[in-house]
Amino acid sequence: MVMSWIYVFILFVSILSAALHGNMQSLSAGILEGAEKGITLSLSLAGSICLWTGVGALMDKAGMTLILSKFLSPLLRLIFPSAKKDSILSQHLSANICANFLGLGNAATPMGIQAAKRLAAHRQSTVASGELCRLVVLNTASIQLIPANVAAVRASLGAAAPFDILPAVWITSLCSAGLGLVVAFLMGKVWRNV
């Protein structure tokens, strides 16, 4: 529903602006051009999506999330103290974060939702606990080893080295997730807990 509003808003703003600037001819020409670009983009993503979901299925079956989660558990207990007492919660949490890290979106979301349900059940309330807020903040800040779709778009547009943005992406997502968590911690101290 939100997207319908956004779409109508975009069309309205475009037509208004074209009328004011006398760009109606290029606007009208742009419509079919845009539709064609949509297909071009889909095609340039197809190879990368096919490859990475295939590799994702492998990583899942090979137990790579389990291997990663061993390294992660100390940090996890710091952010989610209830994971110390609840081993199932701890498993869901680490599976969620590791799957996100490996870019397995299909596996990450169900795991994260399981963890969220468990955290909510601990409190039996419709008010989010500090830990649940932190879980959601962590999931809204993407930490991904290989942003494959972006690299595919870059490759299709003729970038010299499509993956050369990786270090910048890692630094950026670490800062964004880290500071997001710090702010969530601080706000949790002052925000009314009801």
Partner: peptide
Amino acid sequence: LVAVTMLQASG
């Protein structure tokens, strides 16, 4: 992409 192209073409 139709919407985004319209946003750009219209200025």
